[in-house]
Amino acid sequence: MRATKLHADAFSGCNPIVNFMYFAFVLGITIFFLHPVLLGISFVSGMVYSIYLNGGKAVKFNLAFLLPLMVAAAVINPAFNHQGVTILTYVRMNPITLESILYGIAAAVMIGSVILWFSCYNAVMTSDKFLYLFGRIIPALSLIISMALRFVPRYKAQIKRITNAQRGIGRDVSSGNVIVRIRSGLSILSILVTWALENAIETADSMKSRGYGLKGRTAYSNFRFDFRDRILVVAMLLFFAGIIASIALHRLSVLYFPAFVINVPDGFVLVAYAEYLIICTLPLMLDIREDLIWRTLRLKIVSSGNKSSNGADV
């Protein structure tokens, strides 16, 4: 069995393009459109997904950090923002309005959702996926990063080797006065550079020998863009377009100041809500589907295992 999990969840196993698109859509709508219903959907699904991904750690984080932050954000807005027509009370001559309270809550939920979604983003978008996405745009960059990731630890290991070797002939870097130490430190650095350049010649030979420098270099990655990815991209694009269309047609709208006005929930709008709910809970749906499949598979395995062990007993 593997010591480390390959994927955080089923959704992480999708192509990074799908992952990135998903987060771009959800975060975009969450940040730029403070619609209470959409925010609510975003917040709840972000919360559930982050707990699904990070487990107990996420629950602790949400209670200890996220909740106080959101409360603070919700309180601060009405304390400083006095716009709005529905005045509830006065605090030291300053009006507290219903609109600014609502806006504060909306902003707090927005901030909370963004943080939740970013915690999911971190779990899903590992560095190699990020590298892959940028390798699509600039192939040379992904190679350079990959080479840097190879060389830095190599140099560190070599410094250690040189230090130990020098110690064996009485050149201990960690002893003597400052000047002696600097002297031996510098000589180690100088020989490291010589070593690096010398070895780079062979690395360059190895690269040239494998055709580096030929025109039309591609950037290979292990990520496949399969049928499921295609379906997910198309579905997300459709739903996203649907939501954007309803916003553009003012069917989905919200106004906080001067007075709180929200769209009527007609059929068109309900469809938009549903679309957003599907987008937000997409990873969860994938995960739950996969979990269910695993469970039934395991049940089958267990029952067949029992059968065979019974058979062996007989």
Partner: peptide, 21 residues
């Protein structure tokens, strides 16, 4: 050691083919 260019086994395997486009 000197011949290995990238940091991952899979990337190293693909290096030559990437060069060939």
């Amino acid at each position: 050691d000197n011949q290995i260019v990238t940091d991952k086994v899979w990337h190293e395997l693909a290096f030559g083919l990437e060069s060939l486009g």
